[in-house]
Protein backbone atom coordinates (compact mmCIF):
# COMPACT_ATOMS: atom_id res chain seq x y z
CA UNK A 1 0.00 0.00 0.00
CA UNK A 2 1.43 3.35 -1.01
CA UNK A 3 -0.17 6.69 -0.12
CA UNK A 4 -0.62 9.58 -2.55
CA UNK A 5 2.09 12.16 -2.83
CA UNK A 6 2.03 15.28 -0.62
CA UNK A 7 4.09 18.43 -1.00
CA UNK A 8 5.58 20.72 1.65
CA UNK A 9 7.33 24.08 1.45
CA UNK A 10 9.68 25.25 4.20
CA UNK A 11 11.14 28.54 5.37
CA UNK A 12 14.93 28.71 5.00
CA UNK A 13 16.56 26.61 7.75
CA UNK A 14 19.29 28.47 9.74
CA UNK A 15 22.56 28.74 7.80
CA UNK A 16 25.65 26.94 9.13
CA UNK A 17 28.66 28.87 7.78
CA UNK A 18 31.17 26.42 9.26
CA UNK A 19 29.50 23.56 7.47
CA UNK A 20 29.53 25.47 4.16
CA UNK A 21 33.26 26.11 4.54
CA UNK A 22 33.74 22.43 5.25
CA UNK A 23 31.95 21.55 2.01
CA UNK A 24 34.27 24.02 0.24
CA UNK A 25 37.28 22.05 1.42
CA UNK A 26 38.30 24.21 4.39
CA UNK A 27 39.50 22.09 7.26
CA UNK A 28 40.83 24.69 9.70
CA UNK A 29 39.85 28.21 10.59
CA UNK A 30 38.27 29.87 7.57
CA UNK A 31 37.90 33.35 9.07
CA UNK A 32 39.60 35.08 6.17
CA UNK A 33 37.17 33.47 3.73
CA UNK A 34 34.07 34.62 5.59
CA UNK A 35 33.70 37.99 3.77
CA UNK A 36 33.56 36.25 0.38
CA UNK A 37 31.26 33.55 1.71
CA UNK A 38 28.89 36.20 3.08
CA UNK A 39 28.97 38.03 -0.24
CA UNK A 40 27.82 34.78 -1.88
CA UNK A 41 25.15 34.23 0.77
CA UNK A 42 23.85 37.76 0.12
CA UNK A 43 23.73 37.09 -3.59
CA UNK A 44 21.73 33.88 -3.25
CA UNK A 45 19.40 35.23 -0.58
CA UNK A 46 15.72 34.92 -1.53
CA UNK A 47 16.51 32.87 -4.63
CA UNK A 48 16.24 29.43 -3.08
CA UNK A 49 13.11 27.38 -2.55
CA UNK A 50 12.76 24.65 0.06
CA UNK A 51 10.39 22.03 -1.29
CA UNK A 52 9.73 18.41 -0.44
CA UNK A 53 7.31 15.87 -1.89
CA UNK A 54 6.78 12.55 -0.17
CA UNK A 55 4.63 9.50 0.24
CA UNK A 56 4.40 6.62 2.69
CA UNK A 57 4.54 2.92 1.99
CA UNK A 58 4.41 -0.34 3.84
CA UNK A 59 7.90 -1.69 4.26
CA UNK A 60 9.59 -4.96 5.01
CA UNK A 61 13.19 -6.05 4.80
CA UNK A 62 14.25 -9.64 4.55
CA UNK A 63 17.86 -10.68 4.13
CA UNK A 64 18.83 -8.35 1.32
CA UNK A 65 15.41 -7.87 -0.23
CA UNK A 66 13.41 -4.79 0.65
CA UNK A 67 9.83 -4.25 -0.32
CA UNK A 68 8.32 -0.81 -0.27
CA UNK A 69 4.65 -0.94 -1.21
CA UNK A 70 4.73 -2.46 -4.69
CA UNK A 71 8.45 -1.81 -5.15
CA UNK A 72 11.05 -4.52 -4.53
CA UNK A 73 14.72 -3.60 -4.13
CA UNK A 74 17.77 -5.82 -3.68
CA UNK A 75 20.22 -4.22 -1.27
CA UNK A 76 21.89 -5.59 1.83
CA UNK A 77 22.69 -2.15 3.17
CA UNK A 78 19.15 -0.80 2.78
CA UNK A 79 17.81 -4.06 4.14
CA UNK A 80 19.93 -3.64 7.28
CA UNK A 81 18.82 -0.04 7.68
CA UNK A 82 15.15 -0.99 7.36
CA UNK A 83 15.25 -4.18 9.40
CA UNK A 84 12.30 -4.26 11.79
CA UNK A 85 10.56 -1.37 10.01
CA UNK A 86 6.93 -1.77 8.97
CA UNK A 87 6.67 1.48 7.04
CA UNK A 88 8.78 3.97 5.15
CA UNK A 89 8.64 7.55 4.01
CA UNK A 90 9.93 8.12 0.48
CA UNK A 91 10.79 11.69 -0.34
CA UNK A 92 12.37 14.03 -2.84
CA UNK A 93 13.66 17.45 -1.78
CA UNK A 94 15.15 20.41 -3.61
CA UNK A 95 16.40 23.93 -3.05
CA UNK A 96 15.64 24.85 -6.67
CA UNK A 97 17.51 25.79 -9.81
CA UNK A 98 18.82 29.22 -8.74
CA UNK A 99 21.94 27.75 -7.21
CA UNK A 100 22.72 25.88 -10.45
CA UNK A 101 22.40 29.13 -12.34
CA UNK A 102 24.80 30.90 -9.99
CA UNK A 103 27.31 28.05 -10.19
CA UNK A 104 27.23 28.18 -13.99
CA UNK A 105 27.42 31.96 -14.03
CA UNK A 106 30.54 32.01 -11.89
CA UNK A 107 32.24 28.97 -13.39
CA UNK A 108 34.21 31.16 -15.76
CA UNK A 109 33.85 34.46 -13.92
CA UNK A 110 35.10 33.40 -10.50
CA UNK A 111 35.69 29.70 -9.81
CA UNK A 112 36.09 30.53 -6.12
CA UNK A 113 32.54 31.84 -5.97
CA UNK A 114 31.34 28.88 -8.04
CA UNK A 115 32.91 26.63 -5.41
CA UNK A 116 31.19 28.55 -2.62
CA UNK A 117 27.81 28.30 -4.35
CA UNK A 118 28.36 24.53 -4.67
CA UNK A 119 29.08 24.39 -0.97
CA UNK A 120 26.13 26.59 -0.06
CA UNK A 121 23.82 24.40 -2.17
CA UNK A 122 25.13 21.26 -0.47
CA UNK A 123 24.63 22.69 3.01
CA UNK A 124 21.15 24.04 2.13
CA UNK A 125 19.78 20.79 0.73
CA UNK A 126 21.16 18.80 3.67
CA UNK A 127 19.57 21.26 6.10
CA UNK A 128 16.28 20.97 4.26
CA UNK A 129 16.36 17.16 4.46
CA UNK A 130 17.17 17.39 8.16
CA UNK A 131 14.26 19.77 8.73
CA UNK A 132 11.86 17.50 6.87
CA UNK A 133 13.01 14.37 8.67
CA UNK A 134 12.81 16.15 12.05
CA UNK A 135 9.20 17.06 11.30
CA UNK A 136 8.37 13.49 10.26
CA UNK A 137 10.03 12.29 13.43
CA UNK A 138 7.62 14.40 15.49
CA UNK A 139 4.61 13.21 13.53
CA UNK A 140 5.60 9.57 13.79
CA UNK A 141 6.28 9.93 17.51
CA UNK A 142 2.53 10.54 17.93
CA UNK A 143 2.01 7.01 16.61
CA UNK A 144 4.81 5.75 18.89
CA UNK A 145 7.11 5.20 15.94
CA UNK A 146 10.80 5.93 15.60
CA UNK A 147 12.69 6.77 12.41
CA UNK A 148 15.81 5.15 11.03
CA UNK A 149 18.42 7.32 9.31
CA UNK A 150 17.66 8.36 5.74
CA UNK A 151 19.08 6.29 2.93
CA UNK A 152 19.59 7.37 -0.68
CA UNK A 153 20.20 5.61 -3.98
CA UNK A 154 23.96 5.27 -4.45
CA UNK A 155 24.64 4.76 -0.71
CA UNK A 156 26.32 1.43 -0.04
CA UNK A 157 25.01 -1.22 -2.41
CA UNK A 158 21.71 0.50 -3.19
CA UNK A 159 21.94 0.99 -6.96
CA UNK A 160 21.38 4.37 -8.54
CA UNK A 161 18.73 2.76 -10.73
CA UNK A 162 16.35 2.93 -7.75
CA UNK A 163 16.08 6.62 -8.67
CA UNK A 164 13.83 5.68 -11.59
CA UNK A 165 11.48 3.77 -9.28
CA UNK A 166 11.38 6.60 -6.75
CA UNK A 167 10.67 9.07 -9.54
CA UNK A 168 7.83 6.90 -10.85
CA UNK A 169 6.27 6.84 -7.37
CA UNK A 170 6.87 10.44 -6.35
CA UNK A 171 6.64 12.27 -9.69
CA UNK A 172 8.91 15.03 -8.35
CA UNK A 173 8.98 16.71 -11.78
CA UNK A 174 5.35 17.64 -11.34
CA UNK A 175 5.32 18.25 -7.61
CA UNK A 176 8.54 20.14 -6.94
CA UNK A 177 10.20 20.55 -10.35
CA UNK A 178 12.95 17.95 -9.93
CA UNK A 179 13.81 15.96 -13.06
CA UNK A 180 15.92 12.89 -13.67
CA UNK A 181 18.29 12.65 -16.61
CA UNK A 182 19.55 9.67 -18.58
CA UNK A 183 22.49 9.16 -16.21
CA UNK A 184 20.01 9.10 -13.29
CA UNK A 185 21.21 12.45 -12.03
CA UNK A 186 18.80 15.06 -10.82
CA UNK A 187 18.22 18.64 -11.97
CA UNK A 188 18.25 20.93 -10.01
CA UNK A 189 21.50 19.35 -8.84
CA UNK A 190 20.91 20.38 -5.24
CA UNK A 191 18.15 17.81 -4.82
CA UNK A 192 17.94 14.61 -2.80
CA UNK A 193 15.73 11.55 -2.85
CA UNK A 194 15.72 9.24 0.14
CA UNK A 195 14.01 6.45 2.01
CA UNK A 196 13.35 6.72 5.75
CA UNK A 197 12.10 3.60 7.51
CA UNK A 198 10.07 3.69 10.73
CA UNK A 199 9.21 1.11 13.35
CA UNK A 200 7.08 0.78 16.47
CA UNK A 201 8.85 1.93 19.59
CA UNK A 202 7.96 -0.97 21.88
CA UNK A 203 9.52 0.72 24.91
CA UNK A 204 6.80 3.40 24.77
CA UNK A 205 3.96 0.98 24.26
Amino acid sequence: MTSFVCTKSYEAPPIDEKEILRYAGVRGDGAELLPLLRECLDEIKGKLVYKVCYCETDASADGGTVSLGGLTVKSNDLSRTLSGCHGAILFAATVGIAVDRLILRYTSLSPTKALFFQAIGAERIESLCDAFVAQMEQEKAKACCLLRSRFSAGYGDLPLSVQSDLFALLDPARHIGVTLNESLLMTPTKSVTAIVGYYKNLAVE
Partner: peptide, 13 residues
Amino acid sequence: GPTGRMLKPYGDL
Protein backbone atom coordinates in the same frame (compact mmCIF):
# COMPACT_ATOMS: atom_id res chain seq x y z
CA GLY B 1 2.49 17.51 -20.65
CA PRO B 2 6.18 17.96 -19.83
CA THR B 3 8.72 15.27 -20.75
CA GLY B 4 9.86 15.05 -17.12
CA ARG B 5 13.39 15.85 -18.24
CA MET B 6 15.24 19.15 -17.92
CA LEU B 7 16.70 20.83 -20.97
CA LYS B 8 20.37 21.71 -21.31
CA PRO B 9 22.40 23.34 -19.90
CA TYR B 10 20.87 22.45 -16.51
CA GLY B 11 19.64 19.05 -17.56
CA ASP B 12 20.78 16.75 -20.34
CA LEU B 13 17.98 17.03 -22.91
